[in-house]
Write a protein that binds this DNA or RNA. Structure first.
Lengths: 330, 330
DNA sequence: CTGAAAGCGCTTACAG
DNA sequence: CTGAAAGCGCTTACAG
């Protein structure tokens, strides 16, 4: 039972291997009786076609490549959750490729292509414009469908799924301003992730419209590092509210503020832009823009199946809705 | 440049495809001059062998299958981080398979085998004994090397990597008892994950040795659910310390306790058994057994490469060291 | 050291 | 509706 092949099935069902293959791929072209007989044998032997051989013969691997920067980031794993569920539903296998900082990006892309994936889900939002151009051109040359998954890239020809980060951040900034806040800081990462850049644009817009100077504070995603930053920050700046690109950074900020005798939200309002589990495990709980990360993953995967199967796509740039979850921090 | 094949390389280098293949797989068998010539052409054309074709011909896919329950769990993604890094180093591709609750386990295993992976990393610790037996037998029949990654299974013939959860929990329970605690509760999940069961064994042992009755409280991993549980729990029980199988649950507990006017650690000591980011983002910060999850993933993958390449393995059950990180919560 | 040839386990026109 | 045969892009004994 170790390795049943199509020949074994053909032999046991007394048909040719071509017929077995047809039963699996074009059942309607096979006489119902023969079909049933073959199906029975397949079941009996627990036969599953060798995916590699099938891939070579059909020139389709029914595998998608997921290219990401870092799995351990919460958003990455949430995206993966959505991707895997939908991939399973459509019978695609999922191969993972990481592009760590400092590694050869082109080499990784070459590996992805060599693995013969039928489509690519690109989740790495840590590349700069030039690198993105290179990667996208490479994929285009290889003629592999691609969907950007929670990554912003200014080229309308590349399909993508995300939310309108600019608008969401604009909106929540307006809310803080409407509540009478003046010194609204935008706390973002030192690293320039594409989506965080867009959050920043929305924030600036709201501030500028209100006749205020944008106030931006950059810090590390590493909690041990940003704690020290925040002590400094609070000492040197007048601040009545902050908007943080990451929930964990917002929570870290709240902890420092409270330790320094400040009260949240009385002295400072705090909002996050993700709505992860950190937001409900903090004290006070964190008001957030809710980014539907799992859905972004799921929808990307679904969109990619359409491209891989040459189905018609009406909307190549999907913008999912978001909501704002009001909690205790503002 | 879309799809360079071995024939293109052979043609351009004026050798047969067999020689090109040898340059890639057994370079020492090729005349250095020819080898250099071929390598130059490979580089020029940006050639990478079609992984699928190579897989079929060599009957090795250089792919490992990672079988897990749920990607979005923090520990899963951390394990994945270690796995991916090492897989990349050894030139293995990584394919993901999820086994969600209620799905057909055998069907998933059939899929894994059909995908022709060279080895399996099994991360799903949510199966019961019977299910594990079935899965392990299936893998054995298929003759695919497997390593259990942070999963406990009582069969010494199956290689695995984890820490000694029993001992770690025993130790930290002893520490609490040594500090004079009497009502030490073990807070675990309703679901019986294999590693949590082993944590429980260590806890019971310490309690029993101290002549105390084990006090076990089961709750949900879902914060909105366990918050309510904890209110009830605090009302009805005398408790001076808790040990939680998950950091997030410990943090949730602290929040509820503090909201109910209790002080941590003055009234209740709290410790976690993971050491995730939750432990440093809580107020107070959480004392933890530090489980080196990334390392468990990395070491599992390394171990698996040895099996896949028929290298000798001296230690099939790897038990990694852990440490205890003292913070503010006890 | 190198090439011709068989074969990996499938799919897919092509006949019949 | 079914089978024989070619072919997918490689690897690997086998000759030479």
């Amino acid at each position: 039972m170790a390795n049943t092949t199509i020949y074994d099935v053909a032999g046991a069902a007394k048909v040719s291997l071509a017929t077995v293959s047809r039963v699996m791929n074009n059942p309607e072209k096979v006489n119902p009786e023969t079909r049933e007989r073959v199906l029975r044998v397949i079941k009996e032997l627990g036969y599953r076609p060798n995916a590699i051989a099938r891939g070579l013969a059909s020139r389709k691997s029914t595998t998608v490549g997921v290219v990401m920067a870092d799995v351990s980031r919460a958003s990455t794993s949430q995206l993966l959750g959505g991707i895997i569920d939908i991939a399973k539903k459509y019978d695609y296998a999922v191969k993972l490729f990481s592009m760590s900082e400092g590694e050869d990006i082109k080499e990784t892309m070459r590996a992805v292509v060599a693995e013969q994936v039928d489509g690519i889900l690109f989740l790495n939002d840590e590349l700069d414009k030039e690198q993105m151009n290179m990667v996208m051109n490479y994929i285009k040359d290889a003629q592999i469908p691609v969907v950007l998954c929670n990554v912003i890239y200014e080229d309308d020809s590349v399909p993508s799924v995300s939310i309108d980060y600019e608008k969401a951040t604009y909106e929540i900034t307006k809310e803080l301003l409407a509540a009478g806040k003046k010194n609204v800081y935008f706390v973002t990462t030192v690293r320039r992730y594409t989506i965080n850049v867009h959050k920043g644009i929305g924030y600036r817009k709201a501030m500028t419209e209100a006749g205020l100077e944008p106030l931006i504070f950059r810090t590390s995603g590493d909690v041990t590092v940003n704690s020290l930053h925040f002590e400094e920050f609070l000492k040197n700046n007048k601040v009545d509210s902050i908007i943080s690109v990451r929930d964990s950074i917002a929570v870290s900020f709240m902890n420092i503020a409270i330790r320094n005798g400040l009260s949240i939200p009385k002295d400072i309002s705090v909002v996050g832009l993700q709505n992860t589990k950190y937001a409900i495990l903090s004290r006070p709980t964190l008001t957030c823009v809710d980014t539907p990360v799992y859905d972004i993953g799921a929808v990307s995967m679904r969109l990619l199946t359409k491209y891989m199967q040459q189905q018609e796509v009406t909307e190549s740039k999907v913008v999912l809705p978001y909501s704002i979850v009001k909690r205790e921090s503002n």
